[in-house]
Design a protein around this nucleic acid. Structure first.
Lengths: 335, 335
DNA sequence: TTGTAAGCGTTATCAC
DNA sequence: GTGATAACGCTTACAA
């Protein structure tokens, strides 16, 4: 059943003994740029192979105070965009030598405890992605103080103790707002996510203020309690059923909401997109490109942002531009 | 920017000094069932709070040889079912005190290296979920004998050195096959995933042999190179375009393939489901329940299976029943 | 290029 | 209930 190694795991000392060198030499053989003769290294590596030795990363982390571990905190698994981000983050980080601890923070109340766990594992950084964790809670959480680097990914923050790697949401949303105007839509309905933190409010407020500035018109909106297509479906269906004036476009905070909204239009009201009501999203998830959605949306440069995260970890990042990434509007049939 | 604790992190010794007890007493205060007086514990906890102390899990793992870490190896991020499994695994494991290392194994060749990394972090177990990793490769990776427990989740294995936590796929597929027959379908087309390992072939072979046994009829199939709806869309579209006889039902190895297949029917051929061609899947992903799919499928008891994984980690599992879970057919409109 | 000594912060085990 | 000793396997400095 279980693979119980009969003999204890080989250590650097065992290898050293076998080769007839010091433990340090064994260690150097495993360091890329260590000063060691090719001959010694070859001998060490051969012996290591024979004994099945590989350096113990736990002991290494303890001694060096660098874990090469990053904690990824997520609480929002209904949004398919998260799967994309997880994929890219884990892949690119691993390519640069970091492993990823995935922590499912059940809800906002659980986030401080998740952060504490991460700090106890001595992660080099904790990356919060979409976690409902407002700046105030962040400030007071013990875990937050214990974590070396606290990084908000794809989300802005006003907290000076955190590093925010994200698009310029205002700029992105302005692009999108102007596009909606140019296309001739006149009665937008904004479909927003949870209205819990200032960061969550940003896209909506940018859209609303920009629209009012140009069209001098109050805007209705729907608030969905989570970035979950099914909840969006319900909220949009309820709203359209009760509210009098029918919008001509649904401007959605992200694709998860947009897809649910579009489904509601089609299956609850038999409305076509974009002929009856247009829909526009944010994120460009894979499903957005499928024939049933053909969703017009805004794509963030995730890979670039992850590479910036790597720079932050290495300490070589340009901190000024970290929250100024810009993506692109992806125009499809839905709006 | 980063939250560099000005003072070094407090250790158990610091707390001990402040309280005026020994380091071991501090440690006991943090152990649930340690023999320590409530008074001592309270004093220790107060001091710990003051100093921002929390036990270092790295040092604890090193000393105790138990990491409370599980590595999750995944190489298949296009399948939305993975997100569900990840969510439940991370949540339930965390509830029992295990953290999860998420390793993105880029491809089959990369899996041994991912396993090595995990072992170097001294994980208590490595869980392979959907990794294209055949039994032979498994065997050689196991040769290193570095991972304590190697667990295949939601997949069968013939390798006696691994622990397989999964449904009885033959039984499940037989249920499904019989349902298809009972519904009166006569010309099934099987939509299969990668034909790389024996485990991947299992569902298809079960369906084919069961069908032939009852209907004495050869069965066509399509092989999709990955569990990706988009690739399934293409493969199914190509097949239906070239092949003469039109099937009356697509039996898909899982929902990811089924959704792509259904999209192809609708958008490439303007065929309706189930009137023109029915579709049946496996997994019951959230999208399967949406109005556009209404997918008939088979749901595995993921939460139960994860709880079994916890038992395996604790060493309290009944090893006999680990690969005998049974799920249920979820009948919706698609077949 | 190679070796030595002194930690890193815990836990296991035994004594008191 | 509490305290002390010896690991755990590596890294950092420095010496040879």
């Amino acid at each position: 059943m279980s693979i119980d190694p009969k003999t204890a795991m080989a250590t650097a000392d065992d290898v050293a003994k076998l080769v007839g060198v010091s433990r340090w030499t064994v260690n150097r053989a495993f360091k890329p740029n260590a000063s060691i003769s090719p001959k010694s290294r070859a001998k060490v590596m051969a012996a290591a192979e024979e004994l099945g030795y590989a350096p113990d990363l736990l002991a290494a982390s303890l001694a060096s105070d660098r874990s090469n571990l990053v904690a990824l905190l997520i609480d929002d698994f209904a949004n398919p965009h998260k799967l994309q981000i997880i994929e890219q983050l884990t892949r690119i980080l691993r390519g640069h030598g970091w492993d990823t601890l995935l922590v499912n923070t059940l809800n906002a109340a659980d986030a401080p405890s998740a952060l504490l766990t991460a700090s106890q594992r001595r992660v080099d950084a904790a990356v919060l992605i979409g976690v409902q964790f407002n700046d105030q809670e962040l400030e007071s959480a013990l875990g937050a103080r214990r974590v070396r680097k606290l990084i908000l990914f794809a989300r802005q923050s006003e907290n000076p103790n955190t590093i925010s790697i994200c698009c310029d949401d205002q700029a992105a949303m302005t692009t999108l707002t102007d596009y909606v105007g140019e296309q001739g839509y006149t009665r937008p309905l904004f479909v927003a996510g949870p209205q819990t933190t200032s960061a969550h409010l940003l896209r909506k407020e940018t859209f609303v203020s920009r629209w009012q500035q140009v069209h001098a018109q109050q805007l209705p909106f729907v608030a969905v309690p989570a970035y979950d297509p099914q909840l969006s479906y319900q909220a949009v269906a309820d709203h359209l059923r009760t509210d009098g004036e029918r919008p001509d476009i649904l401007v959605c905070e992200n694709d998860a909401l947009a897809m649910g909204a579009m489904d509601a239009l089609r299956f609850e009201f038999n409305l076509r997109t974009p002929d009856d009501i247009a829909v526009i999203g944010f994120d460009d998830v894979p499903q957005a490109a499928t024939p049933q959605y053909q969703l017009t949306t805004y794509r963030q440069p995730i890979a670039e942002m992850v590479n910036a995260l790597v720079d932050v970890l290495k300490g070589t990042a340009d901190m000024e531009t970290l929250n100024q990434f810009s993506g692109q509007l992806v125009v499809r049939a839905s709006a």
